[in-house]
Design a protein around this nucleic acid. Structure first.
Length: 552
RNA sequence: UGACCUAUGGUGUAAUGGUAGCACUACUGAUUUUGGUUCAGUCAGUCUAGGUUCGAAUCCUGGUAGGUCAACCA
């Protein structure tokens, strides 16, 4: 059975078969102006994955041609995230490494009468560019002599002019149907400090003038980018042709869109800047570092990238696929523990006071080699508040007055009495247990429900936040207008301040992924059918654990 | 009233002129010390109208729908 190829793999295989390249070289070219998100992860997995599959290499190149937006902080985070995802670049380059070469090539274009210095204002340039349906008009400066252009361009570099006074433009065709070909700007004057070149330059190349040539300099064979750069390809090719340099080729694929998820760098930056979230790595963020804090593994993200596929049509991936990918990975690897997030006290009235026994629990039901552990059981325990309902709907399997339920790894208990406070809130349950039903004791008694619990005397209080789907749902398609967005986000965040954890969890190392036994909650069904549980959203503890340890 | 890109179940993605397949979701059943997991199954698709062909998701033409392009951003 032959594995089917995506369109990029087909292109590469054809190129390799035709002897066009001996091996392939791809690149991942982020602009260091923000943190990487799940959309970049797709691109990273593609570029590195393709190179790996065909025995090639991948460069990391920072597209740092706009100093006013870029920062070293972003460079560092990008490198960290790529490595965390499990990829290693062959070379670390910067577009700014090529500024001198790019300048020389610009002079070459001038000499070939293919570029000129334009004195028009930004406004004039915009107006004379025409529209998508109307051709543009030639600049009055379009036919300056080579000598004058060379002189002016050198003086631009020397800093003789203010920002915006002049630009260098390619001389192509002001009536071209592709707006990008209407004498695109190559260089603009920007008296700004660059995070790498400092104050050496006051003219900076534009994306179109820098990207293809950078690819060419590095001899990138397959320059893979997203669909919106499709219209840039003729320009990309134009520079390579006129400069007669290594013919890199650009290929476009559809970028990733995820339901309920904000993916624009601009909006994510807004969330951080306005303190709607704590930082770029806030677990509610769709950034790679945010996903990492939420407990996503590199493996799960790589699996996701593989599952979403690569094509040229616009797509919106269902968030449930991403969630499926973590569960798929973690179900097999992460140990499971008991933790009660929203506790309700239960006193087992017929269990001897002061008695404690150790019960055996399985560390991972899908992996026997993970072994077993002991958990303490005693007269007073906490159960999940949601696991008790005073007036249960028809198909409720858990505790309600008079009903029986199994405590995972322990006994079957029966709810005998409900205790309420003055406001009528349920504050405690009185239950009895059946000593014959100890787990593994051979009892044949069956009950419909099994719930998790922790011994009140032994439990560890958790002063941490839990990261799970509730956070995920905070990503809406658009950021709501107004200032209550922060409250909105917080209302969707699950506070774990009340939670109690099984004592063994205190020994778990920081940075370990763990899963809690059924992290479920009830949501009313849209068609107002009886409410329906949503289950096992693979709750994981990661960096947060270190914070909790520090507090104690 | 432009150019370019795209169109396959609810969502993605295969099939490259020869049986429309796979995954996620939803639903059903089996197993189950959590309703999770696992296993089995069900629902559901070629935008439209012509044309070429023995045969079209695939090639051609015309429509339609969506996307991209008019930063001195990338």
């Amino acid at each position: 059975m032959e594995e089917s190829l995506n369109f990029l793999e087909e292109i590469i295989e054809a190129d390799l078969a035709a002897g066009k390249h001996k091996s392939i070289l791809t690149r991942f070219p982020p602009e260091p102006n923000g943190y990487l998100h799940i959309g970049h992860a797709k691109s990273i997995c593609l570029n590195f994955g393709l190179a790996k599959k065909y025995g090639g290499k991948t460069n990391l190149r920072f597209d740092d041609t706009n100093p006013v937006k870029e920062d070293t902080e972003y460079v560092d985070s990008i490198k960290e995230d790529i490595q965390w995802l499990g990829f290693q670049w062959a070379n670390e380059f910067y577009a700014s490494d090529y500024f001198e070469q790019l300048y020389d090539w610009a002079c070459l274009l001038i000499k070939k009468s293919l570029a000129y210095v334009d004195d028009q204002t930004q406004e004039e340039i915009r107006l004379t560019r025409g529209t998508v349906t109307n051709p543009g008009k030639d600049s009055p400066f379009r036919n300056r002599s080579v000598e004058e252009n060379l002189d002016l361009f050198a003086r631009m570099r020397a800093g003789e002019f203010k920002d915006g006074d002049k630009v260098l433009r390619a001389k192509i065709d002001m009536a071209h149907t592709n707006m990008l070909m209407r004498d695109p700007i190559l260089y603009r004057i920007l008296h700004a400090h660059h995070h790498r070149t400092g104050d050496k330059w006051c003219i900076y190349p534009m994306y179109d003038y820098a990207h293809g040539q950078s690819d060419s300099i590095e001899k990138i064979t397959h320059s893979i980018c997203t669909l919106e750069f499709d219209v840039h390809r003729p320009l990309y090719d134009w520079f390579i042709e006129k400069l007669e340099i290594f013919p890199s080729h650009q290929y476009e694929f559809a970028r990733l869109n995820l339901t309920y998820t904000v993916m624009s760098k601009r909006k994510l930056l807004e969330l951080v800047k306005n303190n709607y979230v704590s930082a770029w790595d806030d677990p509610r963020m769709p950034t790679i570092c945010g996903l990492r804090r939420r407990g996503y593994t590199p493996e799960s993200i790589r699996l996701f990238a593989e599952k979403v596929g690569v094509a040229k049509r616009d797509n919106v991936i269902d968030l449930s696929l991403l969630e499926w990918c973590v569960r798929e990975d973690l179900n097999k690897r992460a140990r499971r523990y008991l933790a009660v997030l929203n506790p309700l006290k239960v006193v087992i009235t017929n269990y001897p006071e002061g008695q404690t026994e150790e019960l055996e629990a399985v560390n991972n039901p899908e992996d026997e080699s993970a072994g077993k552990r002991k958990i303490p059981f005693s007269r007073e325990i906490y159960i999940e508040h949601d696991d008790f309902m005073e007036n249960p709907p028809k198909k409720y399997f858990r505790l309600s007055p008079g009903s029986e339920v199994r405590l995972k790894y322990a006994y079957i208990i029966k709810c005998e009495e409900v205790i309420k406070d003055a406001l009528g809130n349920v504050t405690e349950l009185r239950c009895t247990y059946d000593p014959e039903t100890r787990s593994g004791g051979g009892s044949t008694k069956q009950v419909k429900g099994t719930i998790h619990w922790v011994s009140a005397a032994h439990a560890v209080p958790a002063a941490v936040r839990l990261f799970d789907r509730l956070f995920t749902e905070a990503y809406m398609d658009d950021i709501p207008e107004g200032k209550d967005y922060k409250d909105y986000l917080n209302s969707l965040s699950l506070q774990l301040s009340k939670a109690y954890l099984e004592p063994e969890l205190a020994n778990v190392q920081a940075g370990t992924n763990v899963q809690f036994e059924r992290m479920g909650y009830f949501v009313p069904d849209k068609d107002s059918k009886p409410e329906k549980p949503v289950f096992n959203r693979t709750v994981t503890l990661k960096d947060t654990w270190a914070k909790m340890a520090a507090k104690q």
